[in-house]
Amino acid sequence: MERSVNMERSYNKRQEAKPHIAEEWVGKIYTFICIAFLVITIFSMVYFVASKGLSTFIVNGVNAFDLITGVKWNPDIDIPQFGALPFIFGSFSTSILAAIIAAPLGFCAAVFIVELAPKFGRRFLQPVIELLAGIPSVVYGFVGLSVIVPLFRDLFPGQGIGIAAGALVLSVMILPTITTIATDALSELPAGLKEGSYALGATRWQTIYRVALPTTMPQQMTGIVLGIARAFGEALAVQMVIGNAPHIPHSLFESTSTLTSAITLSMGNTAMGSVQNNVLWSLALILMLMTFVFVFIIRFLEGRKKL
């Protein structure tokens, strides 16, 4: 009885300070600090990489246009040349080629999981694909170096290293991303849509090809762009199999470089603040800007989702 008397007006805030009010603030402040840390981190990341990357042009006076379009990369001669086009070309060609290899495979795997054999697909194929996503990139690089490169050396003219080897390794690495998104898209498809097509006498493949694929196209593209983005930023696996020669190759089996491989290799060998070092930060800046472009494309595609 005494307790209830004490409680009489306890729901009126103005009375005394309540422990639970302090507690609410603990929660609010703690979670806010966590999210603030995340946001501040990304902003400082953009700021620092951008300011370092831009100093090549501002402090060292390198022409930005020359950097992007130049094909000669000779950082250590008397009048150094910083043409980064070979790296940009290498990054784009490996990642797009990887997507060209992985996209049909991923789509087929998704069709298998959703339409053909859902039981076996969900129990075996899906875990297998998720496992592929878990394998570290250095292991991919190692396998690429010890299996794919020698194989290509035997089959094709050249050393085996190059865009083809890089793209092949990357295609396996991005296969899980593409497959997962394609699978989600196909399984979200309303049953009525497919049934309608079957009711008209269409075969399974016609249904997939004429109904499922066009309807889920934006999501399929999202998966592919995400895959390209991942391939574009991948560093070590590519670096191990691409050869690292700083020029635009004449064939798929000739040594070349990507933005990430150039950064990885040279960052440790150049002095902080030198023009040779700063220009690597410019490459990183290009990499970062491309990330923004990819995120922007993905946002755009998600906005066009038809379901």
Binding site: I42, F232, I263, V295
Partner: peptide, 20 residues
């Protein structure tokens, strides 16, 4: 959006930021 951008940053960029 910020979280999405951070999640698509290449790990090498995160490493470079760490270095700097």
């Amino acid at each position: 959006l910020v979280v999405e951008v951070l999640s698509s940053f290449p790990s090498i960029i995160v490493g470079l930021f760490g270095l700097l």
